[in-house]
Simulated assay, not measured.
Amino acid sequence: MSPLAFYKCLADDTRLKALLLLVSHSELCVCDFTDALQLSQPKISRHLADLRKCDLVLGERRGKWVYYQLHPALPDWARQVLTLTHDNNPDYLTEAQSNLAAASCATC
């Protein structure tokens, strides 16, 4: 993965927050993202599809839902960028983390 492709994939608030949520949660369902980010399921799915195309996430279908994790083949440098961004910007995800904790996704 080239640095240019990596940073282009991160150049959207929804995609970046989704990736950072996966840094702190090893796996999340589409419904978790909709609760956390307060966006519609089609919008979340579109952004996750973009992240799949970039090979940043890997999705696994279980029933009607798809569960996502950071791609296991993500280069170490890219994983470190995401981890450092997550660890050094706690305020960036405060609302999303609160939404996720409050939701406890009953639909999954």
Rank of each mutant, 00 (worst) to 15 (best):
Ala5His: 12
Ala102Ser: 10
His25Val: 10
Ala101Met: 01
Trp77Arg: 10
Ile44Pro: 10
Leu84Ser: 11
Ser26Val: 03
Gln69Trp: 02
Leu20Trp: 04
Asp13Arg: 03
Tyr67Pro: 00
Leu10Tyr: 05
Cys9Val: 00
Ser40Glu: 15
Lys64Asn: 13
Gln97Pro: 00
Leu56Phe: 10
Leu70Gln: 03
Ser2Pro: 06
Asp35Met: 09
Leu39Ile: 08
Cys105Ile: 06
Val23Glu: 12
Asp32Phe: 02
Asp32Thr: 04
Cys29Pro: 01
Asp50Glu: 15
Pro3Gln: 14
Arg15Ala: 14
Ala49Asn: 13
Ala73Phe: 13
Ala49Gly: 12
Asp55Cys: 11
Pro72Asn: 12
Glu95Gln: 11
Val23Ile: 09
Ala101Arg: 08
Lys43Ala: 14
Leu39Ala: 11
Leu21Asp: 06
Pro90His: 04
Pro75Tyr: 09
Ala73Thr: 15
Leu48Lys: 02
Ala11Phe: 10
Phe6Arg: 10
Ser104Ile: 05
Glu60Ile: 09
Leu51Cys: 07
Pro3Leu: 13
Ser26Met: 08
Cys105Trp: 00
Leu21Lys: 06
Gly63Met: 08
Ile44Val: 15
Leu28Gly: 09
His86Met: 06
Leu70His: 02
His86Phe: 15
Tyr68Arg: 02
Asp13His: 02
Glu27Pro: 00
Leu48Trp: 06
Trp77Phe: 04
Arg62Met: 10
Ala106His: 11
Cys9Gly: 15
Asp35Gln: 14
Ala106Leu: 12
